[in-house]
Design a protein around this nucleic acid. Structure first.
Lengths: 131, 131
DNA sequence: AATAAATATTGACAATGTTAAAAATAGGAT
DNA sequence: ATCCTATTTTTAACATTGTCAATATTTATT
């Protein structure tokens, strides 16, 4: 496990206790938490942290490229510490999000997409998670 | 252009003026409007319609399978009158959403997806719309 | 017309996120 | 160490998007 403090320093963000706590939770939970889940959990170790600070920190981390955002369940933003290319699977029953490795799927073009310059893409799958 | 009134009758929904106005806007605009855009535009011909009625109608149409919802730009739900399988392209600059015909792309599996029973999937592309 | 059922409206509420202003904190110069 | 400044955090208000319950209205049935 890499030092969370280092992560912040390396991208030129002052490593305040609040920020360290947020980073620690996100990078150690390895899930796809939304802002409220992050707030709740970070408050266990840093009880005074405010809603606004959590949002500020998350948006900062996104701007620095340490997190990606996704909207996959309902209308709430989730924060994804996996910044490598990957696809997603959303469980119908629970809404839980799973990362699908990039090389699991291959997307090929049958017909040319005239007039569209694709910068990025992903496959979003939905269904039942078994077992 | 199919009769909007018929659309409602055929799926057993009483065709009130409000519902007709909503259906008319969505199926004739052929875009991917969000609820507020729909509300604004429907009010041009049906000025008394309320926010709640628009939402009620939209949710009803979704339940009847006449519309699909997508969340592709920001956190707002858009309503898509195209209920056939298709992919989406989102323009980075404008946020405008384009339908991509299903057979334009082919998604194949390199590795088996153990433990995931896929009910549905789509490719979401982002980039620049040219010309 | 009288009644019952379905629908529309209003206004309050909830969830998620942003913002501005004040308070707290840290870093640097002296 | 102390003061000054810039950054960060907090608080509280606000914005957006959507839902809900109560009331009013319209429609259908008799």
């Amino acid at each position: 496990m890499k030092n969370n403090l280092e992560i912040l320093k390396r991208c030129g963000v002052r490593p305040t206790p609040q920020r360290i706590a947020v980073v620690k939770y996100i990078f150690e939970s390895k899930g796809h938490p939304d802002a409220d889940t992050i707030l709740e959990n970070v408050r266990k170790t840093c009880p005074t942290i405010s809603r606004a600070t959590v949002y500020n920190t998350l948006n900062l981390l996104v701007a620095k490229g340490l997190l990606q955002t996704q909207i996959l369940k309902g209308r709430t933003v989730i924060f994804d510490p996996n910044t490598q290319k990957h696809h997603h699977f959303v469980d119908d029953a629970t809404g839980k999000v799973f990362d699908i490795p990039w090389d699991t799927l291959k997307v090929s073009q049958n017909k040319t997409l005239q007039g569209f310059q694709v910068r990025d893409y992903q496959v979003i799958m939905r269904g039942r998670r078994e077992s």
